[in-house]
Design a protein around this nucleic acid. Structure first.
Lengths: 86, 86, 86, 86
DNA sequence: GCGCATTGATGGCTGC
DNA sequence: GCAGCCATCAATGCGC
């Protein structure tokens, strides 16, 4: 009897999860529609996505560790690393 | 002057996208909470996720191409293919 | 002078990474070719991939926690959860 | 008898795929080692990955559609879109 | 040209 | 408490 799982609680949990996933799927559908509309109005969807992604990053990175990245880039340049560091 | 993009329309589109993404993020947060609650009640989250995933597949696959997969499995078994087809 | 990165070491590390990534890309190309060949011989690529994936799982899961998954499935069935736990 | 699959050919194909996947897995292991070594030498792995990714992109994008992206950025700026296009 | 499948990147979780 | 690992999510590339 010990390997007996409380079904009704599990049902409830699973139901909540599936409800949330359904809502998420719906919203993703909406996103797709917005992009479709954008394209219909002559915008380049790929670029728009890049822009959104950029804004998402900027929001979190707070001016960023760009500094360190620059430093590495310079180090790479100084040392050579020509032709894709082959 | 042709490479001039209608800013206000773009703003609107981007805003709608970002709104949708925010809602999706919130729902994903909710999902995480539900799983946390499940875990707190002694359920195995990994298994639960497998179950949800399974139900998702079943919903779409409608009895499935299981047939063909079985056929391939049998072919593999018949011909040998022991120890991971090494 | 402290924010000075040793360029030659970085170059070496990056070069090794890029070498590895190039080899991986090549092997992925080979995989694609094998699948193309399979398709040319009348096999269903999608099913084959499912099979390979299945074997990969089986290899790691070692008979698995199928037990617990079954238990959850049963609990769900017992309690109802009809129509996708709506 | 028609739903009979040539087992030995399938075995061979699957075996080749699994061989390739094993090699790829090994190389990915090597990559992980290189990054671990980098970290041990004081490099910031996350930044290094960003750098590698950047170089990967640069290689393919050939100077890029940066132009259009800039245009969109400007349009956005002109029109307002303050505070994350809320 | 669209949708899907794989691959790469980020973030959460677990073990030390 | 942090580092390493794993699982999820976004993004690119391929096939239909």
């Amino acid at each position: 009897m010990s390997d007996h799982v409380d079904g009704s609680q599990l049902v409830s949990l699973i139901a909540r999860i599936e409800r949330l996933e359904a809502e998420i799927a719906a919203l993703n559908g909406d996103k797709r529609e917005v992009y479709a509309e954008a394209k219909a109005n002559g915008y380049d969807v790929k670029i728009m996505k890049a822009l959104v992604s950029e804004r998402r990053k900027d929001a979190s990175d707070l001016a960023e560790q760009e500094t360190l990245l620059d430093l590495y880039r310079q180090a790479l340049t100084r040392a050579g690393a020509h032709a894709r560091a082959a």
